[in-house]
Design a protein around this nucleic acid. Structure first.
Lengths: 116, 116
DNA sequence: TGAGTATATAAGTATATACTGATATGCTAT
DNA sequence: ATAGCATATCAGTATATACTTATATACTCA
């Protein structure tokens, strides 16, 4: 039996799609699908200013797509699995090629932040 | 067994998501999921200028999301099922509430174009 | 406490986008 | 041919967006 997707009102859906319709944010979301990342890692990965990264993350957080989790001086971002939009997001991310090589590169450079 | 979604390079994917990230275009695509529609119908439905509708359709056509089919003086648009993006689009449209009431309204007003 | 690091916000700018009105193009039918 | 309708394109405009630099805030650790 087909399971029907949970519908999302069109204003909200278009807003989310517009957010994902930016290459940087879409890559961030794909990375967050499998990893927790902090702002400085994104700065390293995307080679844009820390300010720009912060602004992208704020937009994603404002609609509840990601959540933050402070660990000491770092703030780690991850996908918000409780969002009503999570199913839609996962569906879309399935079509996006893995970005794990970018994380690997960070690890090789010794720039991966990990604090447990 | 899980069937893996066909991956789409991230530049292309973000471009498509940006296109769908507009309320008018997203509604158009949802309508086209179940109907062929011509420009003048969209003008009626969305109450924006014919020029604006035409420009939206051109953007959707330029990336191959829709195709056109001239019938006499009308040009009917429909989803391009041969697009590599079709699967992604269908996946997304599943989350969008039906817009069929807008077509019904046209029919009631006698404004639905149909030529066979 | 104060220096150093991580992140957020403010202000400004260049570009992209969605729209309008005017005009061009293409088809139909008299 | 030409009038009439459907659609596309052009030109212009107002707003949104993505970025930068500068500054503020929050935390850590000596």
């Amino acid at each position: 039996m087909e399971v029907k997707a949970k519908e999302i009102e069109i204003e909200k859906a278009s807003m989310v799609l517009k957010l994902l319709g930016d290459k940087t944010r879409l890559s961030m979301m794909k990375l967050l699908e499998k990893n927790e990342c902090c702002v400085c890692e994104f700065v390293e990965i995307f080679s844009i200013s820390q300010s720009a990264i912060s602004q992208h993350l704020r937009k994603l957080r404002d609609v509840g797509l990601v959540k933050e989790n402070r660990k000491g001086q770092w703030i780690f971002y991850s996908l918000n699995k409780n969002s009503e939009l999570y199913e839609l997001v996962l569906n879309i991310l399935e079509f996006i090629p893995s970005q794990e090589d970018r994380i690997k590169k960070l690890e090789i450079q010794g720039l991966r932040i990990s604090c447990q």
